[in-house]
Design a protein around this nucleic acid. Structure first.
Lengths: 199, 199
DNA sequence: CTTGTAAACTGCACGGTGTAGTATAGGTAT
DNA sequence: ATACCTATACTACACCGTGCAGTTTACAAG
């Protein structure tokens, strides 16, 4: 039992690495097994096919995102502080090399299949958290964001443009300090438009 | 000659379609030939290998970007108007379905190879145009952007987050009117931080 | 600590299939 | 008659997924 679970994780990790290097179609199951330091038969004992293995990785990623991404608006706390936290909610993922490796692989493969990409987007509830936050802050009067969808997208864009996409392509994860800057700059720029007071 | 050139374009177009659907490794040269409505031998007469065919597509894309993306700062014209144009310089690409199809394919394949991705980024001189613009505007005093790299990245982020990435995943190109909004919103938000006057 | 046993794992060989790239024989326009 | 094309068959190889004989591991009972 404990043994079985260990191998399973090994295989998933090896598969992410292998798929990442040569793509889903470009990777042989022999290679996956080699990366995972496991016999090919064991791979097939855990995952009945290459396709099933791939879907298992998708599931893993969805769970990680859903688990990490969550923040409800709280009217008792200053908006700037909360925006900062909202930014870090996403930033935590960008700083995690494991996650980024997985994201890189998944994005490359899902891009080909718009239906799958859409399904993943929905399952992760990605933008919903940001949207809900903007809406609540607007209703509370701490942000002037009559179009919360737009505000959410712009905020996300500011974070991703420096913290996500470059990493996806370079493979070089952003470190803590860099992410700090990215979040701070995003919050500043954002508040200059959507904030209500001091400037 | 004229005939040969026609076939070449057909093949490139077919290859982009085929690679887009099933990826580089997942697509057979027979399929490429079928998509292009050309015999397989003809494909090999124009491109000595699958790899060479792929590189030719990359070259095509680089050229398209470099050709489209260009705008020098002009101190004689209002900054807002110029930013709007700068946004559209990129927006023109996002609105072009041909380009987006190609971009989608290329991104999916280059993502696997950080070295290739970096090479492409360099060859396209993507951010350089924006960077140079911000720097010139700052020097001219029409923008307060002491960090032109940051300003350029943020501006690009605002455009891409709505005009590029969703399209890359959905395959559904943004139309003229939508792009108009995207550019306008980006310019507005941007000027609220980096502009010097009227708000 | 020894022994027994069931589950999980290894390593390897194998069938069937798909693919990159070549070869060949002939067609068609200029 | 030259240059490019089609159609098809072929070679050599890699890969998915399975089968199987034998080994390792976890762990309970003596």
């Amino acid at each position: 039992m404990a043994l079985g679970a260990g191998k399973r994780a090994q295989i998933l990790d090896g598969a992410v690495q292998a798929f990442q290097e040569d793509g889903f179609a470009g990777t042989s199951m022999d290679r996956v097994a080699a990366r995972a330091q496991v016999s090919k038969r064991t791979v097939y004992n855990h995952f009945e096919s290459k396709e099933v293995l791939f879907r298992a990785i998708l599931d893993l990623m969805v769970e990680k995102v859903r688990h990490t991404l969550s923040l409800a608006y709280d009217s008792a706390r200053p908006i700037k502080e909360q925006l900062y936290e909202l930014g870090w909610t996403e930033g935590r993922l960008f700083v995690d090399p494991d996650f980024m490796r997985m994201a890189r692989m998944v994005i490359g493969e899902t891009m080909r299949d718009p239906i799958l990409a859409e399904e993943m987007n929905k399952r992760m509830e990605y933008k919903a958290v940001f949207h809900a936050f903007m809406e609540a802050a607007h209703a509370d009067g701490t942000l002037i964001a009559p179009n919360p969808t737009l505000a959410a997208e712009q905020f996300i864009g500011l974070l991703k443009t420096r913290g996500f996409w470059p990493v996806v392509f370079s493979g070089q994860a952003v470190d803590q300090d860099e992410m700090e800057d990215i979040v701070n700059d995003a919050v500043t720029l954002f508040l200059n438009t959507y904030g209500i007071g001091e400037r």
